[in-house]
């Protein structure tokens, strides 16, 4: 039974791993930390898996666990020396799809997002993942109205970071 559960879990996570990678990309700055956080999220997902009864989609459930781990549970290990020149996924932009101005804008935007606080990043992340305000508010434990208010503040903040 346990083997079956294990197999089921790893298969599901394997096909949904992009969500976790995206969270790691937002919350870490080098390859080792990325891997570290990915591992911790995987452990937390696995521990919580028996409680996941398929009431919601596997991916929906993953968002919550992944963000909770990144924001609250994960502790950066200090022993690590920062990997230099890590070309983060976030800054890889397909040049041929955008004009130069858009490309520049995107790079600036990603840089600005990286400077946000943990909670702000979570909101932006869920927004970018096309989640509605109901889901955002439930994931964070705030009201829908407050989620909107916060998102507006973040937009202003991003504007200020980009145009100092």
């Amino acid at each position: 039974m346990n083997k079956k559960l294990e197999h089921q879990f790893v298969t599901e996570l394997e096909s949904n791993q992009n969500i976790v990678h995206k969270v790691c990309t937002l919350y870490t700055n080098d390859r080792d930390s990325h891997k570290d956080l990915f591992q911790e999220i995987t452990i937390q997902l696995w521990k919580a898996y028996p409680k996941f009864r398929g009431e919601s989609k596997f991916s929906t459930w993953m968002y919550r666990v992944a963000l909770n781990t990144a924001i609250t549970l994960y502790r950066k290990s200090k022993r690590r020396i920062k990997t230099q020149n890590y070309d983060s996924v976030i800054f890889k932009i397909k040049a041929d799809e955008y004009n130069q101005e858009q490309e520049q804008q995107l790079t600036l935007m990603y840089k600005a997002v990286k400077q946000l606080g943990d909670i702000e990043k979570a909101l932006v992340f869920l927004y970018l993942e096309d989640k509605d305000y109901r889901e955002i508010s439930e994931t964070l434990g705030i009201t829908e109205v407050n989620a909107r208010v916060k998102m507006n503040r973040i937009k202003n903040k991003l504007r200020t970071i980009m145009n100092p």
């Binding site: 294990e6 790893v10 591992q39 521990k47 994960y74 502790r75 996924v89």
Partner: peptide
């Protein structure tokens, strides 16, 4: 652009020790 982990890599991870707060 995202990294891709294999089934085995993920499978190994679930038995690692958590270092959560």
């Amino acid at each position: 652009y995202l990294p891709k982990l294999s089934y085995d890599e993920i499978h190994n991870m679930i038995w690692e020790k958590s270092s959560s707060i």
